[in-house]
């Protein structure tokens, strides 16, 4: 049996996932990270995107979408404190597409009162959600 670690994904509203895993993949602030059991302690902010949890014994892979949060790694415990986490299946693709279009339109329009950082963040969130939905379709 492969080594495993405890993974907890929680958001302020609910506990999303709690269980054993052989690998956790998340998009951290400086790029994608893959955490295997026995990883050295790490703490980082995470960007909007999916978190993939590979379960042991050929278990299925779990996809969770988060719109930001904190990832903490202890050698055999991984904690994700998500700002908002949804099961990937829950994401409404139409809503994500709409938000992306709006954000892009706002970027193109360049009206004076737009908060650029805000728009870019929205855009990043929407494209991450879209990517995840497209991947699930396949």
């Amino acid at each position: 049996m492969a080594a495993t670690m405890q993974v907890d994904i929680v958001s302020a509203e609910a506990e999303i996932f709690s269980g054993e895993a052989t690998m956790v993949i998340a998009s951290a602030e400086l790029g994608e990270v893959g955490i295997a059991p026995g990883h050295t302690p790490l703490i980082t902010r995470i960007r909007p995107g999916e978190i993939r949890v590979q379960q042991p014994d050929d278990g299925e892979e779990i996809d969770v979408y988060v719109s930001g949060g904190i990832l903490e790694v202890q050698p055999y415990v991984v904690t994700v404190l998500a700002d908002t986490a949804l099961r990937a299946d829950d994401i409404d693709e139409a809503a994500a597409q709409k938000a992306k279009d709006e954000a892009e339109a706002a970027l193109a329009g360049k009206s004076g009162e737009i908060n650029f950082a805000d728009v870019q963040r929205q855009l990043a969130e929407a494209s991450a959600q879209l990517q995840l939905v497209k991947k699930l379709r396949r």
Partner: peptide
């Protein structure tokens, strides 16, 4: 810890 990107940003946020 290993901090990404750096300790101040992360700890402030947390």
């Amino acid at each position: 810890y290993i901090y990404e990107p750096d300790s101040k940003t992360v700890v402030d946020h947390v």
